[in-house]
């Protein structure tokens, strides 16, 4: 079985992002970029499936600028087998990404596409679902447990109020939630091995996909700053403040 894992290069989760002064987006100059944490979980899950003997090959695909190759290389160092880099300097919206991925699926014929439920930059949470619609494949989103069965997967999903286990048949789309696994670090031998793993370079035009944006961002603004709190000496003072200052009781 072949698994396709789409990965995205995003601002590192440790970075405190700042909005650009002209409010057109987030300032990315000199900011540390890394693989989207949900994508890392997807790569890890694919590797675990392969280690269990449920898959033979893991193909990683990323859409983005030249540096997205580093993100692919990271996935290869974790244990994926080869990469596809669709180079573009444009910001590609979820629909564009899903259309490109659908074309890659057509070429590669994987039996499973496993990807992050969302990327931590836009938190859009749409690519997996759109891809499932375009392909007409079953989807199991927000997976916290994946079990391979003879003809598909049992997937435990995190939903409001609890867990839901669903059965999907192969081929399928699975999107990963935070608690699915803890991704490994790339070991040094694997980092060196990844150097020799192939990465195919493509462009959106190669697939004949129009990635022009459909959405227009009017303004990006920072959330309102939280005011500093105060410490109260006693319960009486607290009640007094709640009653007279906050007016909530």
């Amino acid at each position: 079985m072949k698994i396709l894992v789409p990965v995205k290069r995003v601002v590192d989760y440790n970075v405190k992002v700042r909005v650009k002064p002209d409010q057109t987006g987030v300032d990315l100059a000199n900011v540390k970029m890394s693989m989207n944490p949900f994508c890392e979980i997807a790569v890890e899950e694919a590797i675990r499936l392969k280690e269990k003997g449920a898959a033979e090959e893991i193909v990683v695909v990323s859409i983005g600028p030249a540096q997205a190759q580093e993100t692919i290389r990271t996935a290869l160092a974790m244990g994926a087998d080869r990469g596809i880099h669709i180079t573009t300097d444009d910001a590609v919206e979820s629909l564009g990404v899903a259309k490109l991925l659908a074309k890659v699926v057509e070429e590669e014929s994987p039996e499973l596409v496993i990807l992050g439920k969302q990327a931590i930059d836009g938190d859009v949470n749409a690519t997996g679902q759109m891809l499932a619609a375009l392909l007409g494949w079953p989807q199991a989103t927000f997976a916290s447990e994946v079990e391979k069965t003879d003809d598909g997967y049992n997937v435990t999903r995190e939903i409001d109020g609890g867990l839901q286990t669903i059965k999907v048949s192969s081929p399928a789309i699975i999107t990963t939630d935070l608690r699915l696994n803890e991704p490994r670090y790339a070991s040094l031998p694997n980092i060196m091995k990844a150097k020799r793993k192939p990465i195919d370079a493509k462009t959106p035009a190669d697939f004949g996909v129009d990635i022009a944006p459909r959405l227009e961002a009017l303004k990006v603004a920072e959330p309102a700053k939280r005011e500093a709190g105060v410490k109260v000496e006693s319960v009486a003072e607290l009640v007094d403040k709640l009653k007279n200052e906050a007016g909530v009781i």
Partner: peptide
């Protein structure tokens, strides 16, 4: 090289 950067990443995360 990219390999140095990845090694850095692995060690930083390990720490």
């Amino acid at each position: 090289t990219e390999q140095h950067d990845q090694l850095r990443e692995t060690i930083a995360r390990f720490v």
